[in-house]
Design a protein around this nucleic acid. Structure first.
Lengths: 337, 337
DNA sequence: TTGTACGCGTTATCAA
DNA sequence: TTGATAACGCGTACAA
């Protein structure tokens, strides 16, 4: 445990100074070839492993980046993490993962811990409950490079990587309108970031087609299955003639929760009520009635965010950027096509 | 960046020694209440964040544990990670995640880096290609606590947490036999760890029912969708009378790959060929023909492995243990029930 | 109650 | 080419 081999141990065995050992092991120029060979061999035979903690203390670099995601059971985030790992692996950064579980206090704490660990940078997707940004602002102002992805906060000095949420949401709504649905319900997430953007896209599509918004058809659902289930229950309690003929959800988990609720009420999809989601969850195509959705390039989001973060780490005058990736409509059966 | 506030800065501002500041901030006994108050306030106003790197160098503890998983797109591992986070969060450990991508070289490198980062312990699920254990043995012998989960290596001095793979595989095979299937194919993973255990369970069930093994129905598929797809293709190239009437796969991704192949060949499940998987993937219940599978308590595996690891970290004479969790048969339609 | 000296493992710097 | 010294930020041990 504590009995780790250090440079000093090797130096003593060889009767040289620790600096010589350090130089030899780090491929510095000015080392005699025979000395280097001796050192390298001895280090190997003694099972030396460099202590990155000590190295970090000196260099002020940890080569690790912190990642804060709200949830990992949501396949979207798992795929983003894969994209992040793609890049960090190649660039030799380590990845410290924390899950905020949609809880702002955990998010704050994670931020604090990552800062204490002196990560070189942070990637964040905000928790559902994130209403104020002060904790992010503080970290950014302290000089720690930070990039938001998916659930972003703009205008606080950090870069953001997201899909064009408003546009995607507008397009799928348009698609439903074109298909002739009249009473379109919307299950929305919290009104920040993507939640707000998608809701706005929905509204814009309605407005452009001169369809009035109906307040009782626009419900908050959060981002998880149970929220979709609950919101759908409310919709089904409406008098028959006020029920929607179509439901659009802020994301696929919410849509799937709603589907579950409809199934229990023996409501046929898409004949009784059509539905569409957002994110193209791994389950979307496999459902009894495959779910129409908006595909987000999850891995790519992870990769782009990480690339931008590393650029910002390595070049302190890299300027913040809002990167927007394109979505793709995945038309399946749940929309009635 | 480098301009982080240190104890010394606070001390200078206040005209006291760094030790006083350290003690005040760490809630030590012997500090005058007024001094403490002054220090705490000043620390806050200066935006002090303790440097855990320096702390770790002294204490030889990093409060971080390394996790090596072969894949994160496989929902099973994402859920395990959630279980791991459950415990690490509560116990105030950080989680360094690395993905081996089923590549033994990445696995070795990850192990090396984690050791250099001086993680307090390591959780591993072996990559598919892991044939020799020497790299694990080396780390274990060096004194770094390690716990294997799911894809374990036993007998090298580390604890293991897994489901009773052999038993689960045997049970599902038995289920298929009871159902009257005669020509049962098996798509197996690499013959180590769970791959081997599940294959053995399959064999044992056949043998107990006096069903002869047919070599051409037992194929290697790896652990991923494409492997299942490829193996199924081979099975379908067999002359009609030699084709299986039932396929059991080492895990759900492989089963799903096989199903995809069958769909392309217009083979009806379960009428033409029945199929079962293992792991109860999130997709299993949602497929066109819902997939019969063996459920592994993924989150629990993560939790138990982490608990055991932390115990081992905190108590150096905690002895290694092989923990086995129970599986549950998830009977759906793909088996013809 | 507070302060001083030293060490954790490494590297930058300057001297030999 | 090699070595001695100091420093990174913090905490332990001891002294005042």
């Amino acid at each position: 445990m504590g009995s780790n081999i250090t440079l000093k141990h090797i130096a003593e065995e060889l009767g040289v100074s620790t600096m010589t050992v350090s130089r030899a092991l780090n491929n510095h120029e000015n080392v005699d070839d025979r000395t280097r060979k001796k050192v390298v061999e001895k280090a190997k035979s003694m099972g030396y492993t460099p202590n990155l903690v000590a190295k970090s203390l000196v260099s002020k670099k940890t080569y690790s980046i912190g990642v804060i995601i709200p949830e990992i059971s949501h396949m979207f985030f798992a795929q983003v993490v894969k994209g992040i790992d793609d890049i960090t692996y190649r660039q030799e950064y380590q990845l410290i993962l924390t899950i905020s579980a949609e809880d702002i206090d955990r998010e704050k704490k994670a931020l604090q811990t990552l800062r204490s660990k002196r990560v070189d940078g942070i990637l964040v997707s905000c928790s559902e409950s994130t209403g104020d940004f002060s904790h992010f602002k503080e970290v950014i102002d302290s000089g720690t490079p930070m990039v938001f992805f998916d659930r972003c906060i703009t205008g606080v000095g950090a870069s953001t990587v997201s899909v064009n949420d408003k546009e995607g949401s507008k397009r799928i709504t348009q698609h439903m309108i074109d298909h002739g649905y009249k009473r379109i319900a919307y299950l929305h997430g919290p009104e920040v970031s993507v939640g707000l953007d998608r809701l706005n896209g929905f509204r814009e599509a309605l407005s452009e087609s001169n369809i009035p918004e109906r307040k009782n058809l626009i419900l908050e659902s959060g981002y998880l299955e149970q929220g979709g289930y609950g919101a759908m229950q409310k919709l089904l309690k409406l008098p028959e003639e006020h029920r929607p003929d179509c439901v659009i959800a802020v994301n696929d988990p919410v849509a799937i929760g709603a589907v579950e609720c409809m199934r229990e009420h023996s409501i046929s999809i898409p004949d009784d009520i059509a539905i569409a989601g957002f994110s193209d969850d791994i389950r979307a195509g496999l459902m009894e009635c495959p779910l129409t959705s908006v595909k987000q390039p999850a891995e790519k989001i992870g990769r782009e965010a990480t690339k931008k973060l590393i650029k910002t780490i390595q070049n302190s005058d890299e300027s913040p950027e809002d990167i927007e990736l394109n979505t793709e409509l995945m038309i399946r059966q749940s929309c009635g096509c």
